[in-house]
């Protein structure tokens, strides 16, 4: 009887796993990602496209602790990589997990979308590249190299306003840190 109870538990667990895997295979990407976030730490997760033109994904998540935020980020990154939405450039480390994790409220407004499209219009792109090229040959690159590599078209700037609405205790954008974060690390944003 005891064996049966133990095997029953195992069988139940196996069934749940199978259901989970089947669910992941058949659900939408958003559902799949949501399913990967442990229920007890899931406060808010949203996924949206940054812009139809840029094809960048921004993932929003919020967890009670920095550690849980990192764990969630790792799972989300894994899911996005498996779905072919992102290509991890380096082996995953705490830093790259932090870089992946994003936390932003709501969808972009039409105004922000227009602004994004303006920033990535061909003329604007070539103007920006020319400016960066010149900056590389001056002292300014000390401050802009990271921006050039991480967010060359300053798309993150568009997120500052919604980010600040998350409330006090949220730091201003800091490219030397790489990404937006609140002070305790439970909210993070990246493009």
């Amino acid at each position: 009887m005891r064996n049966l109870r133990q095997h029953g538990k195992l069988l139940g667990f196996a069934c749940l796993m199978v259901l989970g895997v089947v669910g992941l295979c058949y659900g939408s990407l958003e559902e799949n990602i949501l399913a990967l976030v442990p229920g007890k730490i899931k406060q808010r997760v949203a996924l949206f496209e940054h812009s139809p033109l840029s094809q960048k994904l921004i993932v929003i998540t919020k967890a009670p602790s920095a550690q849980q935020a990192q764990e969630t980020a790792a799972r989300l990154q894994d899911a996005l990589a498996q779905a072919g939405f992102i290509i991890p450039q380096k082996p995953w480390t705490n830093t790259s997990i932090l870089q992946m994790l994003s936390a932003l409220p709501g969808l972009f407004s039409p105004k922000i979308q227009q602004e994004t499209e303006r920033k990535i219009a061909p003329q604007a792109v070539s103007r920006q590249i020319a400016q960066y090229y010149e900056e590389l040959f001056s002292f300014q690159s000390i401050f802009t190299t990271q921006k050039m590599t991480q967010d060359p078209f300053n798309l993150t700037e568009l997120l500052i306003s919604p980010w600040s609405k998350l409330g006090k205790n949220v730091q201003t954008l800091n490219y030397t840190d790489g990404f937006l974060t609140n002070n305790d690390g439970t909210l993070r944003a990246a493009l």
Partner: peptide, 10 residues
């Protein structure tokens, strides 16, 4: 300048 972003120094 020797930058990771560039193949050669500038």
């Amino acid at each position: 300048k020797h930058l990771a972003l560039l193949d050669q120094p500038i």
